[in-house]
């Protein structure tokens, strides 16, 4: 299996950024996820070919990290932080609200494939607790009501690109610090939007 020309070119560029091609496994796994919407077996096979590893080794790496979703994932992955700082300020309630609104339990993906909901460990937003991420785009200072409204809005508007600034503006509250100017980019799936050099997502 190979990817389309553009993706293959990006893959080659990624491999070129490292002294040894094995190092490209992680960004290539993101690329594979961006390609299929989740990390498929074929995606892992392609990454193995590109890095000279066995399929089992690639699976070994992929399964170590929580962000490589091997079992399919919804269009919007809502990760609610319930680590210590967010827990102290009501993160559990936000999680309950999100689960109730979407009808998707913690750790699950809805049948329509729209939402996946998960509790996350600390996402580095403790100053703006409780916080959550949608496709790894951060929203700080989220109340249970905000969480519900956010999910409703996503379901109704189905944005193709999830922009953190936009969601923060609509549903966020206190921030850990001033984020600076609004950014245009955002995530196009459950893959972190980082990739001017082709890592994953579009970014900006």
């Amino acid at each position: 299996m190979t990817w389309d020309r553009r993706t293959e070119d990006r893959a080659a560029a990624i491999v070129g950024r490292y002294p040894e091609k094995r190092s490209a496994v992680m960004p290539l796994l993101y690329l594979a996820m961006a390609e299929d919407g989740y990390l498929s077996e074929d995606g892992m096979r392609r990454v193995a070919q590109l890095t000279g590893l066995s399929n089992a080794q690639v699976q070994g790496v992929a399964s170590f990290y929580t962000m490589y979703k091997r079992d399919g994932v919804g269009e919007y992955l809502v990760s609610v932080c319930t680590s210590i700082s967010c827990m102290l300020l009501g993160g559990d309630d936000v999680l309950d609200a999100v689960a109730a609104e979407t009808g998707v339990a913690d750790g699950e993906t809805g049948e329509d494939g729209l939402f996946s909901v998960e509790h996350g460990e600390c996402i580095g937003a403790c100053g703006g607790a409780p916080a959550l991420q949608v496709n790894y785009e951060l929203i700080e200072g989220v109340t249970p009501d905000h969480g519900r409204a956010l999910c409703r809005w996503l379901a109704e508007n189905r944005p193709a690109v999830v922009r953190g600034d936009d969601l923060q503006e609509r549903f966020g509250g206190r921030r850990s610090f001033d984020w600076g100017p609004v950014e245009a980019g955002g995530a196009t799936g459950a893959v972190p939007a980082f990739g001017p050099l082709g890592t994953a997502g579009e970014g900006s």
Partner: peptide
């Protein structure tokens, strides 16, 4: 299988308490 025989067809999978040894599906 990795160091000695050079065919790493079994590997650790998962993390923490969920680590298991396994092969790649269908391989």
């Amino acid at each position: 299988s990795d160091e000695i025989s050079g065919d790493p067809l079994i590997e650790f999978k998962g993390r923490g308490n969920a680590v298991e040894v396994n092969t790649f599906p269908d391989e």
